[in-house]
Amino acid sequence: MQFFKRKSKPQTDAEYIAAYQASGDLNVLGELYERNMEMVFSICYKYLRDEEESKDATMEIFEQLVEDLKKHQVSNFKSWLHSVARNYCLMQLRSRKVEVGGLQISDDEFMENEPFMHLSDETIDLEGDLQKLENCIGKLEREQKSCVELFYLQEKCYKEIAEQTGFDMNKVKSHIQNGKRNLKICIEKNK
């Protein structure tokens, strides 16, 4: 672990990537990856549902990063890593399906109906234009409206909102997600 002593240690993902691209030093990339390894492993497990396979996948994804990061510019590492990991797992599932033939989801549906988007680039600044935001919130359905208000304005967590409104936790979550999406559409429309 001698690389800890290097001067001007990178801090952000972008700095790590820049350092790796400049030096080609695997240790730099390894350090960055180690910070995210548990996340990647968890994502793999979500899809693959198998310990050993998920570990192999986690290592394979690292190999993919070793090469891809040398070649490509990546502006949002987390979002990119997520899509790399997710697509790797989906690919594994596809090949598994060929082997076993038992998986229920047809791969075309799986792959193309929910392609990954880099969402974080497109999220809008919810605190931005308050007047417009208020108008848009007013237009939301009642359940979505109350959940969104409690979550974003009063900064309550799902559990509190569930207790307060009597909705199920999952309902709360989906109300917030849908409400947020509707808000985004509404604000973009009225720009």
């Binding site: 548990e38 996340m39 990647v40 492993f41 968890s42 994502i43 793999c44 497990y45 979500k46 899809y47 987390k78 979002s79 890593l81 997520h82 990991a85 997710r86 990954f116 969402l119 974080s120 999220t123 979550f151 900064e155 309550k156 967590c157 799902y158 559990k159 509190e160 917030i176 997600q177 947020k180």
Partner: peptide, 25 residues
């Protein structure tokens, strides 16, 4: 705490990377 949970939930909504990881966890 509720406050911490709110912070996590907010980030989860923005970044599918974490949302997927939570499901895995």
């Amino acid at each position: 705490t509720f406050q911490e949970m709110h912070r996590v939930e907010k980030i989860l909504l923005e970044q599918p990377f974490y949302a997927d990881a939570v499901e895995g966890i």
